[in-house]
Nucleic acid binder design. Sequence first.
DNA 1: GTTTCACCATAACGAGCGTTACAGTAGGCG
DNA 2: CGCCTACTGTAACGCTCGTTATGGTGAAAC
Lengths: 201, 201
Amino acid sequence: MTPTAASRTARERLLTAAGELFYESGIAATGVDAVLQRAGVSPATMYAHFAGKDGLVAAYLEDRYSAWHATWDDVLAELDDPVDRLLSVFDAVDRYRQREGNRRGCAFLAAATELPPGHPGQPWLAADSLLLTGRLRELAVAAGVDDPDEAAATLLLCYDGALARSAREWTTPDLGAGDPVRRARDVAAAWLTSRGTGAPA
Amino acid sequence: MTPTAASRTARERLLTAAGELFYESGIAATGVDAVLQRAGVSPATMYAHFAGKDGLVAAYLEDRYSAWHATWDDVLAELDDPVDRLLSVFDAVDRYRQREGNRRGCAFLAAATELPPGHPGQPWLAADSLLLTGRLRELAVAAGVDDPDEAAATLLLCYDGALARSAREWTTPDLGAGDPVRRARDVAAAWLTSRGTGAPA
DNA sequence: GTTTCACCATAACGAGCGTTACAGTAGGCG
DNA sequence: CGCCTACTGTAACGCTCGTTATGGTGAAAC
């Protein structure tokens, strides 16, 4: 908007500050003051940009959704093999973590347990679920698996398992367990080769 | 304690009320007043039994832990086959849901995202993790799988995946996906037969 | 130079909530 | 009877936190 600002605009600073704090400390546990202080923004400015804390939360989730969506697109653009493309969710999670320094599980999973029904951020949670289920099914069809719906559901199970385990290991480190995302990819791949592609016993 | 009380004692009523409300609406979102009203207990009585809301939360988690532990024990006592015993986590979840009317994912998973570090309820979350990892590894050893650690980690991945998906489907119903716990059991069983038990290609 | 726009700093308001205090009641028991 | 225990009901305190209001700064626009 303003070409003047030497540093980033207030809205951007608010969004990154909110992203860090909401993600690390939880949404409900993070006060507006903490976000304002980290962003170096005055209250009036924030309420000019967002519809209160709820609006800021919604914008934060939209931001995460866009970043996740774009990351998956990038990974997908580099793959040709249909099975690789079907398993790309896990590679996308890897790259997303690498980009955003994400080490505490899934932001949407945490938000799903924190946000009440009707919260303005809920549509982005639904969008995330829709993206996952829809795209996994498309890719399963393209990969020519026997039952695309079942394959998508199984992939989704492994995906959520990886994220949930990441979240749990954050608070209770389970040494020697290895990377849950890597393991989830392996399990999903094994399931696909044994039952997904037409390989009758 | 008191043989007099015609109905259950105040402590019991508080615990069940807290269990329902904390589980359905979240811990942070549930006010003490709501628990008191549902339990039909005055504030003074509650603070005589528990160390504030945090103490009530801790007692609630202890209660859930005990119930979960006991349920798994019951299921385990009915099984003899080593592989069935290894897969009993999922059957135990089934029975637990049936007993407690549990339909919104895992209470510990939700609590893990809500409770701050150092909260008096954290030990019970750690106990749950420890029970899972420890027991799964024991059962894996007893089942004679090739790599007990890897088998336990894989089972744990499927387990958390089932619970996380249950939680997500609560807010965003994914019709036609079937029961995540059932699916997790199937995936885990398939993984075991293909790689767990000594069945070299 | 004046207007305008985006923004900062501080303070204050108002609601919600965890907590405590203060009386008052019903039943078991010596 | 009187004592003790377990409990109820209401009210109030104190604090946090989201929100709003007020005055002021600095830089681009014309």
